[in-house]
Computed example of a mutant assay.
Amino acid sequence: MGRTVTLVLVDGAGDVLGALPPFDVALPWWQEIADVVEAARTRHGVGVTVLRLLAAGEAAPPGGPVSYLAQVCEPVGAPLTPYDPGTDQSPLRAPWAVPGGPAASLRWALSRLGRDDVVAAQQRTWNLSSIWRLDAGGVPVAWLKQVPAFFAHEAPLLRLVAEAAPELVPEVLAADGAGRSLLAHVPGEDRYGAEAWFCAQVARDFHPVQVHFTGRVSELLAAGVPDRRWNHNRLAQVAAPWRDTVEGLDELMEELPARLAAIDACGLPDTLVHGDLHPGNVRESAAGRVILDWGDAAVANPAYDILRLTQDLPEAEAAALIGEWARWWRKAAPGCDAETAAALIRPVAELRAAAVYQDFLDQIEESERPYHEADVPERLAAAVSAARL
């Protein structure tokens, strides 16, 4: 299912010009913008920079009807429909979601890249990031990534991980400390849907990094990496509005303190957790594998990552890889019972995911909330299911 897109156009001052006729694009993911920009150019002869989501249909993402606000820098020859944006001035609006915002970030990136032969292509924009590909001679050379304040730890973390495993992370060419980063291009293919053998390679790549940071948690925290070690109060706060509507959630929250204590007793040390370690966030080339998108990274239990990495594998293959991972941890932390920890932490991982999504909702503007509104109750329900396995 693709998207039916309506672009509401504004000029550089933010004055609304009107809406283009709706058009269809194949990719259903609301945050993916490259095909929207291309369709506006080829179908309507309009060059646009997409700023943010305005509205979406009743269905949760992906797909369906969506409308975006987009800036133009030249006169528009296509017919436009009048559009009243109201008086929406959210204090939570991202700096790249306002007229002139993307252009300012591109000027920053290009000045640091120090080249005058670069063409910028918008790839993604939503409440969690704005991403531009920077090409020279038709070949990608770098990427501009801008993230909100709650992900601003990503660039300093990449530099910290590069000290231990430089081949495993993108090179940070520049960062402004406020969410903008200029990253060297990483060649290769994102490995969505990869098989168990590839997931095992990723696990082997990342395990030494996690062992490295078991004794350096203070360095991670000093770099701004969020501390997501057990926070029963936060999990309880997120679950509270749903305890009467998500069947079994009340019972899970009642037994949660005992479950957390049992996980602690397994002796698995806290360390760096990527937070979203699925194969699609790993790019592979002949040179090896590079792990991308570290915004969800935190200090936490390493079992979170192996569960995410094996989430889409057949049950037997997932169990085998978790068993191998547990053997690695028994060598790194003698006496620990990593396999039991991973089994016990499954529902906690889902509760943690619900809390992360609630954090997003608490920090983004109203029009962007459809991206995540369904995620909190879905993850809470998944936590109950995981506890019953």
Rank of each mutant, 00 (worst) to 15 (best):
P61W: 03
A59Y: 05
V76Q: 03
P65E: 02
P75G: 10
P61K: 09
E58N: 11
P85H: 02
P82V: 10
V66Y: 03
G45C: 06
R52T: 01
G57Q: 10
Y83R: 06
G63F: 04
R52A: 03
Q71P: 07
E74D: 15
P75A: 14
V66D: 05
C73E: 14
P85M: 03
E58W: 11
G45T: 07
P85A: 06
Y68V: 01
P79T: 09
V72M: 03
T49S: 14
G45N: 04
S67V: 07
A60R: 08
S67G: 12
P61T: 07
P82G: 07
L69I: 04
P62N: 11
A56C: 08
Y83L: 06
P75S: 07
P85C: 03
A59I: 03
G47M: 12
G45K: 07
T81R: 15
R43L: 14
A78E: 12
A59P: 04
S67Y: 10
H44N: 12
V48Q: 05
D84N: 07
R52K: 14
G86F: 06
P79L: 08
L54H: 02
C73L: 14
V66Q: 01
P75V: 10
P85G: 04
E58Q: 15
A60T: 08
L80H: 06
P85V: 04
G86K: 09
A55Q: 13
Y83I: 04
G47T: 15
L51K: 05
A56K: 00
A78L: 09
P61L: 04
G45Q: 03
V76H: 05
V66C: 08
P65L: 03
P85Q: 09
P75E: 10
C73I: 02
R43S: 07
G47L: 13
E74W: 06
L53F: 06
A70P: 06
V72E: 10
P65H: 08
L54D: 03
P65R: 12
D84I: 00
L53I: 05
A59V: 08
P85E: 00
S67D: 10
H44G: 12
R52N: 07
T81N: 12
G86T: 04
A60C: 00
P75L: 12
G47S: 15
D84H: 09
T81F: 06
P62H: 08
R43N: 00
V46E: 00
P61H: 06
G86N: 04
L53W: 00
V66T: 13
P75D: 11
D84A: 07
G57C: 06
R52W: 05
